[in-house]
């Protein structure tokens, strides 16, 4: 027994001596990786492993109760050929994305431009237009429910009632429900876009605009021929940002109409949620998630392609 311990100690020392050059040589790596260990493990589990798992699950028929069976591309084939609801979800999300990208960028740029033009109260107006960003999805949904309530008690129906119009079933009419849901986020939640435009506009040197004004350009001409071209990288950034954000939309659809009526407000992420967590078709929901991911990836790649052409203020 004692001999064994002695022998172990000896061997241990030999190993330590052999390893010593390794320790000194890789001292930096050992220190760095020791500090990174816990974050990297967490990242490995909840990102890397999770991502591999969703890819794997997308090729199975798993419904949480059975063992997952590998079924090849069946889920993907179903997405593109047999599922009418998913088609609706992509179509709705596309409409939502196009209108939001246009709306948020127009309102964001216009208000940002006006705010930078104002001399007194710049910070006040910035805060007064930005704060609705602080409103959560759930609070926002509660507001939408009340504003667009289909009964005469709803705010909008009350207001148009004063003008002599009858009540409109905003949220229960499949033709207009999606647009009724869109109004609130479209006009209230452009604050981030606006802030980035303000940051971009203040970066443009005043000398450029002054030069244009000396040449007798009107405000509109200066805006169109000087400001917009110089702002191009920021515009691209904001367009890509709003595109990605609005493609992920599900809050109002889930919280206000739950995808209805007749799936007219179904969105892609809501479809992932409903397939996965309501119907427990985890395999199928995973394949929808992968298609969704590929679309977001394509949009992100677009940004890198555009990023090549940078504008310099020098």
């Amino acid at each position: 027994m004692k001999q064994g311990i002695e022998k172990f100690k000896k061997e241990n020392k030999v190993i330590q001596n052999i390893m010593k050059p390794f320790y000194t040589k890789h001292r930096n790596e050992i220190i760095a990786y020791r500090m990174l260990a816990i974050p990297l493990i967490l990242w490995g589990i909840f990102f890397l492993f999770a991502f591999c798992r969703v890819v794997y699950l997308s090729f199975t028929d798993w419904n949480i109760f059975n063992e997952p069976n590998f079924i090849g591309f069946d889920n993907y084939i179903r997405i593109f050929t047999k599922d009418d609801v998913i088609f609706k979800a992509f179509f709705n999300t596309l409409i939502w994305t196009v209108l939001t990208v246009i709306g948020h960028n127009l309102i964001g740029l216009a208000t940002a431009y006006m705010i930078t033009k104002v001399r007194i109260g710049q910070k006040f107006f910035r805060a007064a237009l930005f704060w609705p960003i602080m409103v959560s999805q759930v609070v926002g949904a509660t507001m939408i429910e009340w504003i667009f309530d289909s009964s005469p008690n709803g705010l909008l129906n009350t207001l148009i009632g004063k003008l002599g119009f009858g009540s409109v079933a905003w949220l229960s009419d499949p033709d207009i429900a999606l647009y009724a849901l869109m109004v609130y986020p479209l006009f209230m939640q452009f604050g981030k876009v606006m802030l980035i435009y303000i940051a971009g506009l203040t970066q443009i040197p005043a000398s450029y605009k002054e030069a244009a004004e000396l040449d007798g350009a009107t405000n509109w001409e200066t805006f169109k021929w000087v400001t917009i071209p110089l702002l191009k990288p920021i515009i691209i950034l904001n367009v890509v940002y709003t595109m990605i954000e609005s493609f992920k939309i599900m809050g109002p659809m889930q919280l206000v109409t739950n995808g209805g009526p007749l799936n007219s407000t179904m969105s892609v992420v809501l479809k992932i949620y409903q397939d996965g967590f309501v119907e427990y078709k985890m395999g199928y929901a995973s394949s929808v998630a992968i298609v969704f991911f590929l679309i977001i990836l394509a949009i992100t790649m677009m940004q890198f392609k555009f990023k090549g052409e940078d504008v310099s203020y020098e």
Binding site: I45, F51, A289, F293
Partner: peptide, 23 residues
């Protein structure tokens, strides 16, 4: 490590809802 971490940007959290729920 930095590049790999940055790749996380490209994957929306909505994609990882299902696997993370299971984990």
């Amino acid at each position: 490590i930095f590049i790999v971490l940055l790749a996380t940007f490209m994957v929306p959290s909505e994609v990882l809802l299902i696997p993370n729920y299971i984990i």
